[in-house]
């Protein structure tokens, strides 16, 4: 690296070859730099991008037979999405149930079930959906949007739903990253009441 005296140019001797070399080396250099730093940039982008769409998990919702025909529960998944789980038939298998997002695909308002009209209704822009979640009126009906559907599974009489995993790490306890039923239709038996009214751990052990 010390011997190259003629740094500026000896291009006069072989102008064609010289020019080619310059172009080729410049292109190669550009490609190398773009490839290396580009890949690093891509990794950085991937690091920042939050969604991990393939991470889904099955969560228990409710015992299948607790949900009578027409009953519906509002379920909240670990990542916060709210889902209406409804029983629409009594064939005794998973096809009886349907799980539809309760979030309107139009602008994200919460839809609710209107029994008398046999439809889901979104109060924001009068959007309506049929029992299968297909848009029938209002903005969703016009643009053919449906309520997203979630897979369900019945196992040993227990109803499970497949929902995205929570993306946020929880500092205090990982077990809170589970879904739960947050609202029950009347008539569905709710277990227990205030759970710790009778917490008497030490008294119980005294004889």
């Amino acid at each position: 690296m010390t011997a190259s005296k003629h740094e500026p140019d000896d291009s006069e001797t072989q102008p064609e070859r010289r020019k080619f070399l310059t172009t080729a080396s410049t292109v190669a250099m550009g490609a190398g730099l773009a490839g290396g730093y580009g890949a690093f940039g891509a990794i950085a982008g991937r690091f920042l991008y939050p969604a991990r769409p393939d991470d889904r998990l099955w969560q228990f919702v409710i015992e299948a037979d607790r949900l009578g025909l027409g009953d519906s529960v509002l379920y909240r998944g670990p990542s916060g999405e709210t889902i209406n789980v409804t029983r629409q038939a009594e064939a005794g298998d998973v096809s009886d149930f349907i799980a539809l997002s309760s979030t309107c695909p139009h602008l994200g308002c919460q839809v609710h079930w209107e029994g008398q009209n046999n439809r889901y209704f979104c109060p924001c822009h009068n959007g309506t959906f049929d029992p299968a979640g297909v848009g029938t009126g209002g903005p969703p009906g016009d643009s053919g949007m449906s309520l997203p559907r979630y897979p369900l599974r019945v196992d040993s009489g227990l109803l499970f739903i497949e929902v995205p995993e929570s993306q946020l790490a929880d500092a205090t306890s990982r077990e809170t990253a589970t879904g739960e039923v947050i609202e029950r239709a009347p008539g569905i038996h709710a277990p227990g009441h205030d759970p710790c009214l009778a917490c008497r751990p030490t008294d119980d052990l005294k004889t």
Binding site: I43, A44, R46, F47, Y49, R52, A169
Partner: peptide, 9 residues
């Protein structure tokens, strides 16, 4: 452990 490429960064 969880973020994509987090360990690398």
């Amino acid at each position: 452990e969880e973020a994509a490429f987090g360990w690398f960064i």
